[in-house]
């Protein structure tokens, strides 16, 4: 399996308004394989979202480098924790955002957006505004907007943390199905150990601030994973011990 993204010795320090500095990340090195479901796990303040933002080029690092090996950064999409849907646009318009820079015809945009809305069960909500949707539906729109561009790499920043248990579970299943079918690389940030075990091929655990790589664990379980199996319980204990500050 080829490498999609290589992260080498990334460090990041934030400067506060009062002049103090906070080290968020120190010497992070990772290698993410093409088509892999990679999860970054860590306690609050471990810099996992900052790392994701640096990898997706939304933020710059102070030191180190991110190398996109087999894909261009333009081929990436991002799903945000709080959905980040533009409130003045309808569901259809929000989903079409990623296609506007691609020089596609209106007919092609309509076709691709309609198809993606149908796959995520949103076709009836195309003309709705985000304020008219539940949290779960908003995140479905977030996924539709990300997947409509057929990304090579999908960045997920705690995409299920704002949703109720049942909605999150259903959406995780749908995401796994789409990932298996469309074979994009997923890099997801979460603080939820169960979520990491259920979805990941590999999990990297970050330490508390400044975030460093504590361990990288392969999850060698077949999918779909039963979250009540002894192997999962063992993994859960192992990861929880690593995550504990």
């Amino acid at each position: 399996m080829s490498t999609a993204i290589t992260v080498k010795n990334i460090s990041k320090t934030f400067r506060e308004d009062d002049g103090t500095t906070t080290a968020a990340l120190r010497n992070i090195s990772l290698s993410i394989k093409t088509g892999e479901f990679f999860v970054i796990l860590g306690p609050s303040g471990s810099g996992k979202s900052t790392l994701l933002r640096i990898m997706s080029e939304l933020e710059t690092s102070d030191k180190g480098s991110v190398t996109w090996n087999s894909v261009h950064p333009n081929g990436c999409a991002f799903v945000f924790q709080q959905f980040a849907l533009l409130p003045w646009l309808t569901v259809f318009e929000n989903v079409s955002l990623g296609l506007l820079s691609m020089s596609l015809s209106n007919a092609e945009i309509t076709k691709r957006v309609t198809n993606r809305l149908r796959l995520l069960g949103l076709q009836k909500f195309a003309k709705h505004y985000p304020r008219e949707l539940s949290g779960g539906m908003k995140q479905r729109v977030g996924f539709a907007r990300a997947l409509v561009i057929n990304p090579k790499v999908l960045f997920l920043d705690e995409p299920f943390s704002e949703l109720d248990t049942f909605t999150a579970e259903a959406l995780r299943k749908e995401l796994l199905e789409l990932w298996k079918k469309e074979k994009f690389t997923v890099i997801m940030v979460t603080h939820n150990v169960d979520e990491a075990i259920e979805l990941a091929d590999r999990v990297t655990v970050l330490t508390t601030r400044p975030g460093t790589v504590e361990a990288i664990l392969p999850i060698g379980l077949n999918r779909p994973r039963s979250m009540r199996s002894p192997e999962v319980f063992d993994l859960h204990d192992k990861i929880t011990n690593l995550v504990k500050p």
Binding site: R53, S56, L58, N74, C76, A77, F78, F80, Q81, Q82, A84, L85, L86, L89, E93, L97, G98, L100, S101, R145, I149
Partner: peptide, 21 residues
């Protein structure tokens, strides 16, 4: 919101599209 601006950045909205949307 910062994440609205990040969404605009990640989906490369520029020029007239940036103004309009």
């Amino acid at each position: 919101r910062k994440d609205w601006q990040e969404a605009i950045t990640i989906y490369h909205l520029r020029g007239w599209n940036y103004l309009q949307y």
